[in-house]
Simulated scan of single mutants.
Amino acid sequence: MTNISKHAGATHISIQLRQTDLWLILLVHDNGCGFDSEKEAKGLGMQNIQLRMQYLEGFYRFKSRKDKGTTALFLFQQSKIQST
């Protein structure tokens, strides 16, 4: 949320949290300036996300295009979340 506010210039942010029997799913979308999600991001924000996802044994994916905003998907197995 901080990076969206600080860097993306977004005027709208959508956050959805869903739970199934197996998964906890977090979907975040903004209408900000976007970035090239095909390039490997090496900033501190991305490093923090990678470390947290490794710790929680989760999966994530970003889809972003210049001037089209960004969508981030985070998946966590329920069994892993409950045991941490």
Rank of each mutant, 00 (worst) to 15 (best):
A41W: 05
Q47C: 10
D30H: 00
A72E: 07
Y55C: 00
I13K: 11
S5L: 15
R52I: 15
A10W: 07
Q50D: 05
A41P: 10
R18P: 02
D21P: 11
T84S: 06
H7L: 09
D67A: 04
G58L: 02
L17F: 13
Y55A: 09
R52Q: 15
L75K: 06
N48H: 08
D36P: 00
L51G: 02
T70H: 01
K66W: 09
T71N: 01
D21I: 12
Y55S: 04
G32D: 03
G43Y: 13
F62H: 11
R61K: 11
I25H: 06
G43A: 13
K66D: 07
Q19R: 11
T84Q: 09
Q16W: 05
L51V: 04
E38V: 09
L44M: 14
L26P: 00
K6S: 15
R61G: 04
F59C: 06
G9H: 01
L24V: 12
T2K: 15
T11A: 09
R52D: 14
L75G: 08
D30V: 04
H7E: 06
K80H: 12
L51T: 07
L75M: 09
T11E: 02
K66S: 11
K42N: 15
Q47T: 14
N31C: 00
K68S: 03
T71E: 01
F35K: 03
F74L: 07
Q77S: 12
C33H: 00
S14I: 00
L56N: 03
L26E: 05
S83A: 12
Q82M: 13
D67I: 01
S37T: 00
T11G: 01
Y60L: 01
K6Y: 12
L44Y: 14
E40H: 14
M1E: 05
G32M: 04
T84F: 08
K80I: 04
Q77K: 15
K6I: 10
N31H: 02
H29S: 14
G9Y: 10
Q54P: 01
I49Y: 01
K80T: 08
E40S: 14
D21Y: 10
D67N: 12
G58D: 05
L73S: 03
H7R: 10
Q78H: 02
L56P: 05
A10S: 13
I15D: 00
I4G: 05
T71K: 03
E38W: 11
H7F: 06
N3H: 13
Q16F: 13
N31L: 01
K39N: 05
N31T: 00
G9F: 09
F59D: 14
T20Q: 05
T71M: 01
A41F: 08
